[in-house]
Amino acid sequence: MRSKTFRESYREDIRIFKTIWVKFWLVLFAVALLSLPLWADPYIIYMVNISGIAIIAAIGLNILTGLTGQISLGHSAFVALGAYTSAILASKMDMPFWLTIPAGGVVAAFFGILLGFPCLRLKGLYLAMATMSFGVVVEYGITHWESLTMGVRGISVPAPTIFGYTLGDPSKLFYVTVFFVTFLTLAAKNLARTRIGRAFVAIRDRDVAAEVIGINLTKYKVMAFAISSFYGGVAGGLYSYSTTYLHPENFTLLLSIEYIAMIIVGGLGSILGSIFGAVFLTAMPDIIKGFADFMGRQFIFLHGRYDEEWNIAAFGLLIMIFLIVEPTGLNGIWSRVKTSFKNWPFTY
């Protein structure tokens, strides 16, 4: 059993890296991750990129939905706004990626504030409806404002360059993604333990009580919308560079539901949970495909029955199963396992 976990002050209690061992494992993980392009398969690197983008978007949604309790069915709209902003800035104005990606975030955040103000009065399913209709409106906008977004023809994004050095290759874009993921994850982790994060949680638990103890609801709710959509926008910007081609069909209601599935499966209100959920659901189509191939080889009549549709069905199923059986998500399972190992042999 591990000792010296006794904490003497509040400062120690809210520390991000609680023990030296956490730091140790994190460094080890960072080394393994950063050396990934040297030894891993290009497909794995591509998957890590995609998961990284999903992590950023999921953390954003988790700040709004998990921490602040404001349910949003319009997260894909912010991702779309970020993606199109950076794509347009990069392709029409030749701006470098380190400007266009944050610009995507800022534009998304601006729209987040625009949406946040009218949504102040709404809660629960009314808020879900309002954000859903916002998503539909944005989808309409990017489909039909053809002079700017190229509509259904899609817009192609030039490869990012820095100091005349092209980063188009997934194994080079990898470092850009990792940088943004690390930075934004740390920022979110820090945010969650400051006054702002505590205010968000207070609003989630009981908005009236939060207001009584002096939390400005307007300010913090709009702030949650802004931060969440900023994350979505940055994820969108990275997405545009990663896929190099944007089409309105990539940003439908289904994408919002995918993000919701990520944070529910990972764990609502937990940053680590968002990471778990995003990685798990990004890898899931491949898991299903592998399983389907395996089953197809075992049973002839199942051969070739795999369909993209199974992935969507799995999203739905996972949302239901986790909400019913394990509302704390993968993060809850993880911390339970961890605790039981920590306290071994005195587990109970």
């Binding site: 349910i71 539901i257 919701i260 999203f315």
Partner: peptide
Amino acid sequence: RPMIGEPQFAVVMVTIGLSIFLRSISGI
């Protein structure tokens, strides 16, 4: 039934999960 007494958010999400599940299963 397992969702009785859960917050409204969770119930809404469960029906959303149910909807995309049914839709894709019917598609299959």
